[in-house]
Write a protein that binds this DNA or RNA. Structure first.
Length: 772
DNA sequence: CAGTGAGCGAGCTTCCGCTTGACTT
């Protein structure tokens, strides 16, 4: 048994470190925090100096008892949790729970998992820094106060099970404000002029260049007039400039930039990126994936240098040291990089391989030379106007890091790729081949994707690498936000083309507003957001986290008592909570749309118990209002009176079929026909308001045909039991439940008895439901 | 899979940050 017990946070880390430390050291992991505030009874004794009530959560008890066992047989305990606020707190909780003393405890830290760093740490132990622990305690208690006071307020005033918190509520606010910016956006159009010019080169060959007018034209009259003038003009290159530009690589990955690039380049969701990265980390392929640091260990820097020089030559290498600009970064780890940079490729599942390659390239590129680019700008005069055209071209003189990696931004995608210009000279006379003025509409801002929201949150210092992905799941799970593909719309744009002194007008269809996988706030998200902003402006402020972080820093530096800080915050906060509880009405986000011309009743929309709804008339003694759920793409803020009135036209009876009536309605899952106790979905092309009985019968028959194909076998003895063909192959359906058919059976040869025994067997398996 | 939305008001929900599993119906 080792004399030394080292405790780190992550089990994968423990394995590596044990190798470095060798004999006499046992390395175990705490799996993160081992204690947390109790959930019941608030977990903070507010009246008693905000005393935190800590407990060991159920799922951590086993780990704690194991650590206790190892502690007993060790002479020295080395607390090697991360060097940041949370890590310091973990060290303290460990020392409390394991009953450690100052004599048998050493606190050590390292920022990189290399032999030298760890040796160095062991040689320079210190004590637990209680100021930092207090700063963490303040952070933890503040979050509990905010979360567990605001959430119940929402249950009372809006809807049960809702939640609010320092991080999630501000994330939702970002989305709500972006959405309103888009809703309120007033689009306008102008004309963009582009031209194709030609000239003969020294060999007499015709060469074409593309150019653009440096300004937009206001409207179609101006565009027509401009082109008319162009028809009469002559053109000349009056100036030729070249500029050399340098482009530098991006720093190595942090959690947030990895999520962004994996989203853009590989189409991964934030959660997917993290789970793939976790697997790579556990397999020892990459360094830790939850980090805000762009730093690389000196060992890594040396290997990168060697690999770049070996692979591309020494002029491709450039040593660089990056600095974190992120607010509140704690830099307890390295940047995300391959553990062994010499491994360009790895084996394993495709997602892991792709993410690894991305990390490898980014790490390598971050230590490569600048790209040198020569930009050429040709200015082309128009003889009868003072306006000029410009043609720009870019030539890469030295590719440098671009050999491996380039960051694609959303703007790049919009502007298209850069062009290369043919050899040009000043004074060259040009002929126009075609000059085009096409209408361009201004565009509202893009909505946030998961990754771009993470980027924004990081900029504001809200959330941490370990919480970006969970926060994004939370706001979706609470129903504040949905991830959507927005189809966009089409519109006509006017295009004028000038060729051979003739102007031709045409109209083109243009798609716009199409967005893939974007986060869109729901009605409930908006109502909750507005409520919180009205009553808790300071907590919803984008700077709130930054402000309290400053105070946490003061606590960590020993200049401020944590209880004092919390008390200052709470005394004001508490008053607001109580006031809101007493004074504010139940909030539904109600909006009155107008009056129904048929009934004379008022039409309104609001958030109800089960989501957004339209209501016809208010409750009176002699009148019960009608209700209808809003459809998926309808929003309280934008729905019109006409659209709301249409909702009350359903359910609709559209005739009989086989002596049973057919009723059309819309449910949570979309429009359907109900007939003889069965349900048939309408297709996207069918409009529930106008569908006729003929089409409805067609749908019913199609569905019946498909269903019969699904049946592999039925038993006349027991009609409840059927063998069906599903998405994942054959299965048994019995009394509304489905059962998997074990692989060694042939589904077509199963007897009723076989089926029942399969069902009995699968029922015997424990249905392990767990409380969390 | 396929609605619901008045009122008795039980008993439940909830935060942020550290970590990794349990699972596939």
């Amino acid at each position: 048994m080792g004399e030394n017990l080292v405790i780190v946070e992550s089990p994968a880390k423990a394995k590596t470190i044990e190798k470095f430390l060798g004999k006499g050291f046992v390395v175990k992991s705490s799996f993160g925090h081992i204690r947390d505030l109790a959930k019941k009874d608030f977990g903070v004794d507010i009246k008693n100096q905000y005393k935190p009530i800590y407990i060991v959560p159920e799922d951590k008890k086993k780990i704690v008892s194991e650590l206790k066992k190892f502690t007993k047989s060790a002479k020295l305990i080395w607390l090697a949790s991360d060097e940041d606020r949370e890590g310091e707190a973990i060290a303290w909780h460990l020392s409390e729970v394991l009953g450690l003393t100052e004599e048998n405890t050493r606190r050590i830290v390292f920022h990189e998992i290399t032999k030298n760093a760890i040796r160095n740490a062991v040689d320079n132990p210190r004590k637990i820094n209680y100021n930092v622990v207090q700063a963490q305690q303040a952070r933890r208690v503040l979050d509990r106060l905010v979360g567990f006071k605001l959430s119940p307020l929402l249950w009372r005033k809006i809807k049960p099970s809702l939640s609010a918190g320092r991080v999630q509520s501000v994330a939702v606010r970002l989305l709500v404000e972006k959405e309103r910016e888009i809703l309120n956006f007033k689009t306008s159009s102008s004309f963009k002029v582009s031209a194709i010019f030609s000239f003969e080169d020294s060999d007499g060959k015709k060469v074409e260049i593309k150019a653009e007018l440096s300004r937009r034209l206001k409207n179609l009259i101006e565009a027509q007039g401009f082109l008319r003038q162009c028809g009469q003009a002559s053109y000349e290159i009056v100036r030729l400039e070249t500029k050399s530009l340098k482009r530098s690589p991006a720093p190595p990955f942090t959690t947030s930039t990895l999520q962004q690039e994996a989203g853009r380049k590989l189409g991964f969701s934030v959660a997917q990126t993290m789970s793939v990265a976790q697997k790579l980390y556990e397999a020892g392929k990459i360094t830790y994936m939850r980090t805000d640091s762009v730093n690389l260990s000196s060992l890594a820097l040396n290997t990168v240098k060697k690999v770049i020089e070996g692979e591309f030559g020494s002029k491709y290498h450039q040593f660089r040291k990056y600095q974190t600009k992120t607010k509140g970064a704690q830099e307890a780890h390295e940047a995300i990089r391959p553990t062994y940079i010499e491994n360009k490729d790895i084996d394993g599942p495709a997602a892991g391989v792709r993410l690894y390659n991305l990390i490898w390239k980014r790490t390598m590129a971050s230590q490569m030379s600048n790209a040198e680019i020569e930009k050429t700008i040709a200015t082309i005069s128009i003889s009868n106007m003072s306006d000029v055209f410009t043609a720009t071209g870019e030539v890469i003189k030295f590719d440098g890091f671009l050999k491996l990696y380039s960051v694609t931004t959303d703007e790049d995608i919009e502007n298209g790729s850069k062009t290369i210009l043919p050899p040009l000279r000043e004074g060259e006379k040009l002929n126009y081949e075609m000059i085009t003025a096409s209408e361009k509409f201004t565009q509202p801002p893009f909505r946030y994707s998961e990754a771009s929201l993470v980027k924004k949150m990081e900029e504001l210092g809200i959330g941490r690498p370990s919480t970006y992905a969970p926060t994004i799941s939370t706001i979706q799970n609470r129903g504040y936000v949905v991830k959507e593909h927005l189809d966009g719309n089409e519109r006509d744009i006017i295009v004028y083309e000038l060729t051979e002194d003739k102007i031709r007008e045409s109209k083109k269809r243009e798609k716009y507003g199409r967005e893939k996988s974007k986060l869109v706030p729901t009605d409930i998200g908006m109502v909750v957001n507005d409520f919180l902003i009205e009553h808790f402006k300071s907590i919803m402020d984008y700077n709130f986290t930054a402000l309290v972080e400053k105070e946490f820093d003061e606590i960590a530096a020993g200049n401020l008592e944590w209880v004092k800080m919390i008390d200052t915050f709470y005394s004001d906060f508490h008053v607001r909570v109580e006031k809101t509880l007493k004074e504010s009405e139940k909030t539904t986000g109600e909006r009155v749309l107008g009056v129904d011309p048929d009934s004379g009743e008022e039409v309104l929309v609001k958030v109800g118990r089960y989501g957004p709804l339209a209501q016809l008339g208010k409750v009176r003694e002699d009148y019960k209002p009608r209700f209808a759920s809003l459809r998926k793409n309808q929003r309280i803020e934008t729905i019109s009176l006409e659209e709301a009135l249409d909702l009350f036209k359903l359910p609709r009876e559209i005739g009989d079929f086989e002596k049973n009536s057919m009723i059309v309605a819309i449910s949570k899952y979309g429009p359907y026909i109900r007939h003889d106790g069965k349900f048939y979905s309408l297709t996207k092309q069918d409009d529930p308001l106008s569908i006729n009985s003929e089409r409805a019968i067609e749908i019913i028959n199609t569905k019946r045909k498909e269903d019969s194909k699904k049946e592999i076998k039925i038993f006349s003895e027991n009609k409840n039991l059927r063998i069906l063909n599903g998405r994942w192959g054959p299965y048994i359906s019995y009394e509304k439940k489905n059962y998997k058919i074990p692989k060694n059976y042939n589904p077509e040869e199963l007897s009723l008895k076989d089926c029942l025994s399969i069902i009995a067997n699968s029922k015997n398996k424990k249905s392990g439901k767990r409380k969390s």
